[in-house]
Amino acid sequence: MARVTFDEERCKGCGLCVPVCPKQIVVIRTDKLNSKGLHPACVERQDLCIGCAFCAIMCPDQVIEVER
């Protein structure tokens, strides 16, 4: 089991993390805005996460931490 956490306040919604996820579980939350008025990214289906950290590797803003 793995867990990935997003610091939604730091996220700029750039989407670089979305296409690289091998399980395609990273999404941009269109239902929420952070204080910068941007849609943050997140993972809903934590259960599918394999902890590969691809999303974190492509993140330019230190938004993502991964545990396994």
Binding site: M1, A2, R3, R10, K12, G13, C14, L38, G51, A53, A56, I57, P60, D61, Q62, I64, E65, V66, E67, R68
Partner: peptide, 20 residues
């Protein structure tokens, strides 16, 4: 569970101003 990807201490943590 153990952190496999954590925020590096080599950065101050100040949010970066670069474009998304």
């Amino acid at each position: 569970m153990e952190k496999v990807f954590k925020i590096t201490k080599g950065l101050t943590g100040v949010p970066m101003h670069y474009c998304p």
